[in-house]
Structure formats: structure tokens, C-alpha cells
């Protein structure tokens, strides 16, 4: 991981010194372990803040919408796909960006680690051998990295950036033998009543903080539907129908655009698996339109293009 960090700093310094970009967006160490935070570097002397490790799960494409300056952005596989989506949706110009591609080694899940140890975690480090060492008050434990991955990273099939101006390292090997939709098929096999119970249970803890929306790079409407008050589409309280409406609509807005970066799930303070909703839509897009979001700059997404062979069995 240290090579990645060094290389990112070196590239960022060069870009800022040459004036190719006005700022570089990357990660710096957070004030808590396992929580790296986004960092905008504008001066070459500040690039040493930048780091890269397995705690960089936040999607940096979120910080690109409607920017006017030239930006260098550190992008792993999912970030790069969201950048493609932004370019397709005219939220940023390709010429404004200098994409520093990072072949991603998958991110670790802070919630999984916290559930495996007792007491406060003070430090988490990673070894070259694929171990994660967790230190805290009076304990030190070691886990296999594969055990503590974020769920979306464990089934990720696009770890290498799809667009980049330069790469930090050689591409990593992509996973090919993963079953991405096992859990979704289980839900599809449920009866209506079971499915309702499953989803009611899924978001029963929701406190309507909208962290999933804010962390999502796709959510950039000037006024979100939850904030509209005339007419008010969704109530603001803890009514179960309002919670349901919020989650349905949030998921639908991501249809055909979601890259399964996991930012929503990572951001949720109460640990709701919000990806269960977007993943179904992702699966449908794959099966009905053979579409994966953010893979190419040329093709239009299925929901804003008409093709005569679009499936229409549901229409009478």
C-alpha cells in the first residue's frame, strides 16, 4: 500500500506544480482509525497528506458535480465508473479531469471489524500478506483481509478503473467466479408477504438521516424529493410508509446508474443494508438491457434511450 501512497503523492505534486490541475481530490487519514476522509489538495506542499490504504471506501466522484476548475481525482474502479456516469449526465467535462487510476485491492468494512472485537479500536494496519491487524485497549487481533471486506467489494468485478489518465500501479486481477446476485435471487423467490416482511425488517431501524443519499455520487438533484414541500411527496417523520417511500424512491433514482460502490451502506449509521434495494435494479438492468453502469462513455444508459427491442411484457 505504501507504494500506492508514494505514487499518488508524486503524481499529485507533479500535476499541481505543472499547473495541469487546480486541485487534487484524494484521501487523508481520518481522525479515527478505519475512517479515511476525502481531502482536497490545492498546493504542492500539501500533497503529503494524501494516503491510500484499504479504508478509502468513500466515493470521490461525489465531489465532482458542477465544479468549474480542473481537477485531478484519485479513482478506484467504482469511482471511475461513477465519473463516467457523471460525464454522461453532463455533470462534469472529461477535459476538466485528470483521473489518477488506482487498481483497487478492495476496502475493509469498519462495521465487521467492530463486531469482531470488543472495546475501542485504536489502530488498524494491513500487512503485505493480506492480514488486517486490529489494535485496541488491551487487545491485538489479526484477521484475513478476505473476512472483513465490505460486502460490495467481496463481489466486485470491476476493481480496475475503466477510465484513467494515468495509473498508480499495474492493474490487479479481476474476480471472475463471483456470484453477484445470490442474495437478490433469494428475495425474488419469496412470496409477496415474505418479501414485505423482509423489507420492513430491513429498514425498521431507519432514522431518516439521509446519509445514504448524501454519500451517493448519483444524488445531486438541487432539491431532493424528500425536501420538496409543495407538494410534499413524502412525510418527514418516522411513519413506516414514509420510510418505505423514501427508500423505494431513492433506489429508483439510482436505476441504471448505480455502480454498487457501497457508499450508501458504508454511510448508514444504523447499518441498514440499503444495497439490497439498488442491487435488484442493477440485476434487472443487467438482465433486461445487458447494461452495467459507467463502463463506457459512448453508450447511452437504458433508461434514457429507446430501443425497439426494449422489453415491454408488462404493458397491456
Amino acid at each position: 500500500m505504501q507504494e500506492y501512497t508514494d505514487k499518488i503523492r508524486q503524481i499529485a505534486r507533479r500535476l499541481l506544480e505543472e499547473g495541469t490541475v487546480d486541485m487534487v481530490i484524494g484521501f487523508r487519514k481520518g481522525s479515527m482509525p478505519i475512517m479515511n476522509e476525502p481531502c482536497m489538495v490545492r498546493r504542492p506542499q500539501d500533497v503529503d497528506q494524501l494516503v491510500w490504504d484499504s479504508n478509502c471506501g468513500i466515493n470521490l466522484a461525489n465531489y465532482l458535480t458542477d465544479r468549474k476548475e480542473k481537477i485531478g481525482v484519485v479513482a478506484k474502479g467504482c469511482d471511475s465508473r461513477n465519473i463516467v456516469t457523471h460525464i454522461i449526465e453532463n455533470k462534469i467535462d472529461r477535459d476538466q479531469l485528470h483521473i489518477i487510476g488506482v487498481p483497487c485491492g478492495a476496502m475493509i468494512d469498519k462495521r465487521k471489524i467492530a463486531s469482531l472485537v470488543e472495546g475501542e479500536i485504536t489502530d488498524v494496519t494491513e500487512t503485505e500478506a493480506g492480514k488486517v491487524i486490529v489494535k485496541g485497549e488491551g487487545f491485538e487481533k489479526s484477521f484475513d483481509k478476505a473476512e472483513v471486506l465490505q460486502e460490495n467489494c467481496a463481489i466486485c468485478i470491476h476493481r480496475n478503473p475503466v477510465v484513467h489518465d494515468e495509473m498508480v500501479a499495474e492493474p490487479v486481477e479481476e474476480q471472475t467466479d463471483v456470484d453477484r446476485y445470490a442474495d437478490i435471487r433469494e428475495i425474488e423467490a419469496m412470496s409477496d408477504a415474505e418479501r414485505k416482511a423482509f423489507f420492513d425488517d430491513l429498514y425498521k431501524e431507519c432514522i431518516r438521516c439521509y446519509a445514504c443519499r448524501n454519500a451517493c455520487p448519483l444524488c445531486y438533484c438541487p432539491t431532493c424529493f424528500v425536501d420538496e414541500s409543495r407538494p410534499q411527496w413524502v412525510g418527514k417523520g418516522q411513519n413506516e410508509n414514509d420510510i418505505r417511500t423514501f427508500h423505494f424512491l431513492r433506489a429508483y433514482h439510482c436505476a441504471g446508474r448505480c455502480t454498487d460502490c457501497g457508499a450508501c451502506e458504508r454511510a448508514c449509521p444504523v447499518g441498514i443494508k440499503v444495497r439490497m434495494l439498488t442491487k435488484k435494479l442493477e440485476k434487472d438492468c443487467k438482465e433486461l438491457f445487458d447494461w452495467e453502469a459507467g463502463i463506457s462513455l459512448e453508450n447511452r444508459p437504458p433508461l434514457d434511450a429507446y430501443r425497439p427491442n426494449d422489453p415491454d411484457e408488462f404493458i397491456k
Binding site: 409477496d192 418479501r195 414485505k196 420492513d200 408488462f314 404493458i315 397491456k316
Partner: peptide
Amino acid sequence: MGIEPGRLHFSWI
């Protein structure tokens, strides 16, 4: 997800 399939219809007329 709580809405029965028969409650929502689409048609083209």
C-alpha cells in the same frame, strides 16, 4: 416490497 403486483398496471392505448 409491500405492493402487490396486481395493484399497478401499465398499458398503451
